[in-house]
Amino acid sequence: MNEIVTLISAALLVIGSLFALVASVGLVRLPDLYTRMHAASKAGTMGACLMLIALAIHAADFGTMSRALAGVVFFLLTAPVSSHLLAKASYAVGYRLHSSSVMDDMAPKDQAK
């Protein structure tokens, strides 16, 4: 039983760190701010949450486990809010989409301003 828990947390650690790596590679490779935001807000959140869950199931006592899970919930709640705010602010200021974008439903409103 104990060994299985250890193995699961080891697997979660490796998978989580790989997701973090993928997120940062995406941050470098993707063409514009908004697509980069996809990588950071999904793969990055996923990576950090998986590693916190690994910590939660590795520590067997109630206090640590509940705090780690609270951290996961907290991170899941705040990550979309912060990326949403950043996207909204930078769109309102006028950072444009990359030239490979195919459509922009928000644009007419901006031109009318």
């Binding site: 997701f19 993928v22 997120a23 590679v25 995406g26 490779r29 993707l30 063409p31 514009d32 908004y34 697509t35 996809h38 990588a39 999904k42 793969a43 959140t45 996923m46 990576g47 989409l97 990359h98 490979s100 974008s101 195919v102 459509m103 922009d104 439903d105 928000m106 644009a107």
Partner: peptide, 26 residues
């Protein structure tokens, strides 16, 4: 959906030729 989306981002990022068509939808 969270797991699926992280996986989708990973495959998009790691594919050698990225042909993505991003855009804003109302």
């Amino acid at each position: 959906e969270l797991v699926l989306s992280a996986w989708r981002v990973a495959t998009t990022v790691l594919s050698p030729r990225m042909d993505i068509k991003p855009g804003i939808i109302a």
